[in-house]
Nucleic acid binder design. Sequence first.
DNA 1: GCCGTTTTCGGCCCGACTGTTTTCAGTCG
Length: 574
Amino acid sequence: MTNKEVAEILRRIADMLEIKGEIVYKALAYRRAADNIEYLGRDIEDVWREGKLLEIPGVGKSLAEKLDELLRTGKMSFYEELKEEIPPGVVSLLQVPEVGPKTAKLVWEKLGITSIQELERAAREGKLRTLPGLGVKSEAKILAGIEAFYRRSERIPLATALPVAKELIKALKEATPHALKVTAAGSLRRMKATIGDIDLLASSHKPEEVIETFTRLPQVAEVSMKGPTKSTVFLHSGLQVDLRVLPPERYGSLLQYFTGSKEHNVALRGLALDMGLSLSEYGFKRGEEEILCPEEEDVYHTLGLEWIPPELRENRGEIEAAKEGRLPRLVELGDIRGDLHVHTNWSDGASSIEEIAEAARRRGYQYLVISDHSHGLGIAKGLTPERLKEQRAIIDELNRRWSDFRLLQGAEVEIRADGSLDYPDEILASLDLVIASIHTGLRQERERITARVINAMRNPYVDIIGHPSGRILGQREESAVDMDEVLRVAKETGTILEVNGTPDRLDLDDVYIRRAVEMGVKLAIDSDAHNLYGLDSLEFGVAMARRGWAEPKDVVNTLPLEELLKALKRNRHH
DNA sequence: GCCGTTTTCGGCCCGACTGTTTTCAGTCG
């Protein structure tokens, strides 16, 4: 059973407990455990086999027993009993915006509603307004919520949300002189791989005017909620945007609060309470006395912490690290000396070798690895060994042109469905760098696909495993590959794992990056560009690496050229 | 249900907005 599946069951239990009306803290405990399991970075089954369930934060005696039963037998009797008690359709009502546990319970008990379709019918027939606590307006809100549910858009990639946020910030600043600072916060500022909605905030002496202006921007399709300091709107694209406005002297606490994550904030507030302080977006309070925080640093310093980079704010150890002054010096785009994975029009890329090389050089890179596909990937015009030789001649020719920049010839070699590599060893040996990737047979079962990757890593000429999980955000789940095993073997063979910055890949995921960093497995942050603009994607790879606590020393392409060449695997095997 | 150099019991973050309420409950983040 995967971590995600276990986490889903725990979250479902939490939902059912809330509908039952159990104390909310019980449900919270299940959700916290679910989060910690999902982001564990290792297989829950392994942890279970080692008898270390209790070491997972948020898992105590009771949950450890229930998880043991689940992993041992595939079923959890507590969960099965709850399912008998509460129909699954009632739990599904919680997916509708505006419907929470109380409303779900109410309509189930009073009207026998057990599905979203039934809820919709009841709303249309005006039955909801007859229930205690609900009126005509609530009924309309729920109906609107159901419509939103039906056309709900999935989370969108970070790279899609960022320019939208930038445009809104610009538009708001131009539309009113009262918006002083305007910033994107939330998961966007934390650079999560996907974004649910956009959180903006502004400082102003006249918050109400800023809110008013914002809700009238031409980008806004619908105003969902509007108060003196806060509003929620939907853009024409269906994307939800929240705006929160406070005066400048409270901007630091507002920025901190709105950046989240929720779990990080909860932990910070707990810390504040220990110091006799109460923390909110307005600042600190000690009794009646207020401590204002115009800058975000003020919030952290008041709590005796170093300022924590937003990418780390997930309550996964960053607060303890900040307390002890051992936060990592996270890798930055400026540390990157070259891109190790780009395609050209020799395979499925759009630009020539020369064009992309010049573009990389203009970025200040010291080197660039041309890594077109191998011939097995026919649809991508993969290179035969003969064409590879022709390409080498061109690369050699181009290299005479620069003294400050070097082109390397690599390849993205297919790991075939049977586990063999798409070029023979003598061809691999002729390349400066070899990336081995899986593009086919991604749905193979765990043992088989893991064996393929490990076989590739054991080949002395393979330097990097490209996009190790094979996920495509919003389209394809990660493969069943046993990432724990991949990490172990990578440590043993010195194989580098790629952090692919392509916006819909972002693969490795930050959770595994963190694990790699802890284990001392090296990373390569690459763009996997297929055209000149694609080079920009490396920035998102950097963001993922930062979320995974990676420092420059963990990333091979922060090295100068000579050191990079020394670090590559082949030099040890020759 | 978890958790503990002030606690093994009694806490568990804090506030905005909305609607149906004459003082607060529900939902959301």
